[in-house]
């Protein structure tokens, strides 16, 4: 009896664990199948065409791709230096009394859902962008800034964790040679924790590019490529969030699925690079 139950338990857990792989494979094949119609209709033009006009049955994804790239790039440019600054503050600078409360609140803020950041951005940040930079406020710029604020806590927390892996004795030996804090940080801590820091930045990039709610509120979903950052724009997830329930033709649906597939492939690639190239998993107990 015990033997049978033992086998059942072993096989059941294995099957469920395998289902994770099955689901991922299923997601890819489903999205691919659903995109087929659009893939056959527009082929490679899908990602190079700039006109997205559902009423004309024209679906060019370039504006959305452009918007994803630019908003994520903006977010990274703004968030990376501040995240490094916050991480330095938390790991090397903050007095013991501040270290833990500031660190914990940053971690908790990383847990706040992105929809909240989006809502705050719409009501409080968009007006400021409008007043300072002109335009309607709903714009690529607002999206980049809100996105940067959203990824900041995650980036700062993981950068701090990576910096904290530097052994004290290594830091002490640099101080013992007469280094200043900054000398020690730039010459010892950052080189030591480099892989972890870069890996977490790329991971943050992978998350940012797929982030939907933080940007949907403030971007406007306008399929137009503009170098003027104060203009409304769109990104792949923003287009999906806005248009999925409105799609009324097969080609429209299929195009949206192709967008989803594109997004999934892009973020899978970026996250894999972060994970396999920079962040080799630390084994528990190893």
């Amino acid at each position: 009896m015990n033997q049978i139950l033992d086998k059942i338990f072993a096989h059941a857990t294995k099957f469920i664990a395998l289902s994770v792989l099955l689901i991922v494979a299923w997601i890819f094949t489903t999205l691919f199948e659903q995109s087929l119609f659009s893939l056959q209709a527009s082929g490679f033009d899908f990602i190079t065409e700039t006109l997205w006009a559902p009423n004309l049955e024209k679906f060019g994804a370039l504006p959305a791709i452009y918007g994803s790239v630019v908003s994520t790039f903006l977010a990274m440019v703004l968030a990376v230096p501040i995240a490094i600054g916050v991480a330095i503050f938390l790991s090397e600078l903050a007095p013991a009394k501040l270290k833990s409360p500031v660190g914990v609140s940053i971690e908790l803020l990383a847990a706040i859902p992105s929809v909240i950041y989006g809502m705050w951005g719409l009501f409080y940040f968009v007006p400021i962008v409008r007043d300072i930079f002109g335009g309607v406020g709903i714009s690529m710029l607002s999206a980049g800034i809100v996105l940067s604020i959203m990824i900041l806590p995650f980036m700062a927390a993981v950068t701090r964790d990576a910096m904290n892996t530097t052994p004290d004795i290594l830091k002490e030996s640099a101080y013992a040679l007469g280094g200043t804090k900054w000398d020690v940080i730039k010459d010892v801590i950052i080189p030591y924790a480099k892989a972890g820091i870069i890996g977490s930045f790329i991971l943050a990039l992978g998350r940012a590019i797929g982030e939907t709610m933080a940007v949907t509120f403030v971007m406007g979903n306008v399929h137009k490529i503009s170098t003027d950052l104060t203009q409304p724009a769109t990104s792949i997830p923003v287009a999906l969030a806005n248009e999925f329930t409105e799609a009324d033709t097969q080609i429209y649906y299929s195009s949206l699925f192709e967008l989803s597939l594109l997004l999934l492939v892009i973020s899978f690639t970026i996250i894999s690079i972060a994970k396999f190239y920079f962040l080799r998993r630390k084994r528990v107990g190893a």
Binding site: I169, A176, D187, V188, P191, K194
Partner: peptide
């Protein structure tokens, strides 16, 4: 302290080669 540590060096319990 910077000048002090330049004049008084230290070797630690474990080797501390910097990542360079």
């Amino acid at each position: 302290l910077i000048n002090l540590r330049i004049k008084i060096g230290m070797i630690f319990q474990k080797p501390t080669a910097f990542p360079m």
